[in-house]
């Protein structure tokens, strides 16, 4: 039998003791696993503000195929992190969502500063699969996790003067580099009529695809209003204000004749940039017809009875 001879000119002091050697191996395995996990899953956010341990699955479903989690978390409009579709994924990872606070003010009996967790804790988290229709004529089907907005708002006890609810996104150009350029008026503002905000479909969303909300999708908490164009579903909310007057909204300030306060999905209202008659479902090549109120006509049409939706677009 042939034996290989090794040159042993290594001094005993150069040899790593076995205990350290084992630890090093352990470290390499852990970092390898972690590294691979991060590589395989770059679109999940590292920090969590609302830990989602349990939720009621499938409370609302569209019956349509879900958009892939990868597409929904890599193709985002979130101008606070840049105007390109993949900018939010790249630039949102440093957003710190720990100890997230929300200021509640205006026409309600329980104003104050709330920890997000305290606002959400009293209620069950539900999984709701909604269509999301962007004003840019593309759409997705996303399984959100959240609490009905109505539950949250009722717990804050709005007064009879509360006709609208205004929301604001975090203003912090250090964490949100997109705010260093005045592409829009910062902070981002959105608003709903109180009956729209209280509609059972309106969701205060803290997660998607069974996980905590990724930063690029609006962590730690965002609105989801499925019958309106996507920009109404404001992200990374830090302020909720009950108002008597209709609040101003960011895109309306930017383009008053393009983006109305209501911005309900409506194939009949023409837009100067995109035909709203059709939409491209992400993952598909050809376009499909857009439905009135994004297919939620039964649930929400009554909110706009006797309103001319071409005037109040």
């Amino acid at each position: 039998m042939t034996q290989f001879k090794f040159k042993t000119d290594i001094a005993p002091s150069q040899i790593t003791p076995e205990s350290i050697y084992e630890k090093r191996r352990e470290f390499m395995i852990t970092s390898g696993v972690l590294g691979t996990a991060l590589l395989l899953n770059p679109w999940t956010s590292a920090r969590a503000s609302v830990a989602i341990s349990d939720y009621k699955p499938n409370v609302v479903n569209t019956g349509e195929a879900l958009t892939s989690e990868k597409d929904a978390t890599t193709y985002n409009n979130f101008y606070e992190f840049g105007t390109g579709k993949t900018d939010p994924l790249q630039n949102a990872q440093n957003l710190n969502t720990d100890d997230w606070k929300i200021t509640v003010s205006g026409e309600c009996d329980k104003p104050g500063e709330y920890a997000l967790e305290d606002l959400v804790k009293p209620f069950d988290i539900e999984e709701r699969i909604y269509r999301l229709r962007c004003v840019e004529a593309w759409s997705m089907v996303i399984p959100w996790l959240g609490v009905p907005m109505a539950s949250i708002l009722k717990s804050l006890q709005p007064t009879s003067k509360a006709k609208y609810v205004a929301f604001k996104t975090l203003l912090d150009p250090e964490q949100m580099p997109g705010q260093k350029r005045s592409v829009l008026q910062w902070p981002y503002e959105e608003g709903l009529r109180i009956d729209e905000a209280m509609n059972p479909l309106t969701l205060f969303a803290v997660g998607m695809y069974g996980k905590t909300m990724p930063n690029q999708n609006g962590a730690p908490v965002r609105l989801v209003v499925p019958w309106k164009y996507g920009f109404k579903s404001i992200k990374s909310i830090v302020s909720i204000e009950f108002t008597e007057e209709q609040p101003q909204t960011s895109w309306n300030i930017s383009g008053p004749n393009e983006y109305g306060f209501y911005s309900n999905v409506n194939p009949e209202v023409n837009h100067p940039r995109w035909s709203q008659k059709k939409e491209r479902r992400i993952g598909e090549i050809f376009k499909q017809k857009t439905r009135m109120f994004n297919g939620y006509e039964t649930e929400v049409a009554h909110l706009y009875k006797d309103m001319n939706l071409k005037t109040y677009f």
Binding site: K70, D71, A72, T74, Y75, K85, T86, W138, R280, I282, G283, I285
Partner: peptide
């Protein structure tokens, strides 16, 4: 064309 064949055109290849 190369990126299209390898599915590397992002979530909205048409765009």
């Amino acid at each position: 064309v190369w990126n299209a064949l390898y599915g590397d055109l992002g979530a909205n290849p048409v765009e």
